[in-house]
Design a protein around this nucleic acid. Structure first.
Lengths: 273, 273
DNA sequence: GCAATTGGTTCATTATTTGAGCTATTGGTT
DNA sequence: AACCAATAGCTCAAATAATGAACCAATTGC
């Protein structure tokens, strides 16, 4: 097994408890949420704070996401200016579909939203900015898994699959069954698996070597998901995904693409042979 | 001394080795740069990677800043939407001065650039995006120190002060001497202390409780720093800083998110009384 | 072919993290 | 005012996790 610092991982894990609905968290609360001892949580927070990854309000003592992220996000954008190109594509996709669209790439074991453009309609789906999308409960996640390397999928599916709604699939085998069809048609559709009353479509875009890079998706209120609209949305979506693939010099999918570092078939047989 | 996890701090410190000039680093190289053992560096990188803080190119094996930063930067911006307002102010400042301007806030023990607008002139100063500005060697840093809490200043000045150019002040006492004058006039000027041939002006902006939040600055090639231009630039700069200060007074939501825990004037006298 | 890189792994030694329990402070209730 | 229940933060012995020298295996340049 590949090594990894447990302490560092735990500390970084604290950051995942912050989200748009909960931008500020106190020490005891965070310790309770994360299951760590208060002293431990404090030590982590202090370390994170000294590097600007969290910030503490001097009055209320609560912690929130720090300014260092602005710095590194800038850095990443200048080195690999994706988000901007993605933004343009999303905008066009919204023009065509009139529904909220977003793009994501893999960050750890969930998808990180790297851009979002909202529908012009008043009744629209809104993603929380900076939200981490669960792989098994969203159209984006499923389409990603369907194109990801087998080992990555195995790793992920054996973890606990959170049930967000009655529709959320939590059985690994059941999820695997969808992959074939998704790869076949080039997109995935999900309905109410993450949020009730929301339908999502997602398609993958690929890197130069045919590996999946990320996903682009359209989300709309279930009430607007009439059949003929869906066809049009899917057409636009696939066009947008193709655009992202080629914009990066990517190749439209190899038979079984792999996700990042996870090779489909390593030279040696995997450990558990 | 306040506690903090040494391991976590070391791991996070690795990220500081990435910058615009060096967006990708290999394992051995990073181990050498950071002074850590290869095995240690690898464990840290693996932990960072699993959370999306770094990303590894599957071909070349080099590491670079990961996508998680895009996610958290979005999150921070929605909770504390600064960068956008700052951007507008910067743009106006560049309109008036025709010189590159930028704004920063404290992130750990350096200033994080949260926005930059470049001069329209062909010979202009360009900041590396996502650069961390050293507190002792830049106009922004000095003006920040001049308004920061005494304890914070003590902490910082007793660390090693890197010499970037012949002009870089590295003597703590010498640096302290400037603070009075800076507070007096409301801005700081530096010339060639970080980069040769660059002159910088910086002014502070404050939170609702009078603590310093961040700095706004103008940087120009030394050859253009004629006296009458300087006066105009300073006037514009102070106006811009004032705008940022007042703009934050009418912030919706609770007035959180200031430059860390350091009060300008603590109730008690600082430690070295 | 050889030499010098690289990324990644192993395992005994060592230093670090850990957490129950402590203090101090704040805010709300009677 | 006294009291209670939260909070943030600190201490120190016990347990655990980090560490690093030596070791592969694979490239790369000669």
């Amino acid at each position: 097994m590949s090594q990894s610092s447990a302490t560092v991982d735990k500390a970084l894990g604290l950051l995942d408890f912050f989200n748009a609905r909960r931008p500020s968290i106190g020490l005891s609360e965070l310790a309770r949420m994360s299951g760590h001892n208060k002293a431990t949580a404090l030590r982590f927070l202090t370390a994170l704070e000294s590097r600007g990854f969290v910030e503490q309000d001097p009055e209320s003592k609560v912690y929130h996401i720090g300014p260092a992220f602005l710095r590194f996000a800038q850095l990443r954008e200048t080195s690999f200016p994706w988000a901007l190109a993605v933004e343009a594509t999303l905008r066009q996709l919204v023009d065509e579909t009139e529904e909220t669209s977003h793009a994501a790439i893999l960050a750890g074991h969930a998808l990180a939203t790297i851009g979002q453009v909202e529908s012009p309609r008043s009744n629209r789906v809104i993603l929380e900015a900076g939200e981490a999308l669960p792989l098994h409960a969203t159209a984006s996640g499923l389409v990603f898994l369907a194109h990801a390397d087998a080992r990555f999928v195995d790793d992920f599916l054996q973890a606990n699959l959170v049930r967000y709604t009655d529709q959320t699939p939590t059985d690994a085998a059941e999820i695997r069954e969808k992959f074939g069809a998704i790869r076949e048609v080039g997109y995935s559709r999900s309905s109410g698996t993450y949020e009730d009353d929301v339908v999502g479509f997602a398609a993958p875009y690929f890197g130069p070597d045919g590996t999946i890079v990320g996903t682009i998706a359209v989300a709309l209120p279930k009430v607007r998901a009439a059949e003929e609209r869906e066809a049009a949305i899917i057409a636009s979506l696939l066009r947008a995904a193709h655009k992202l693939t080629t914009a990066r010099g990517g190749q439209p999918e190899r038979a079984t693409g792999d996700a990042g570092k996870y090779r489909t078939h390593p030279k040696e047989e995997p450990t558990d042979a």
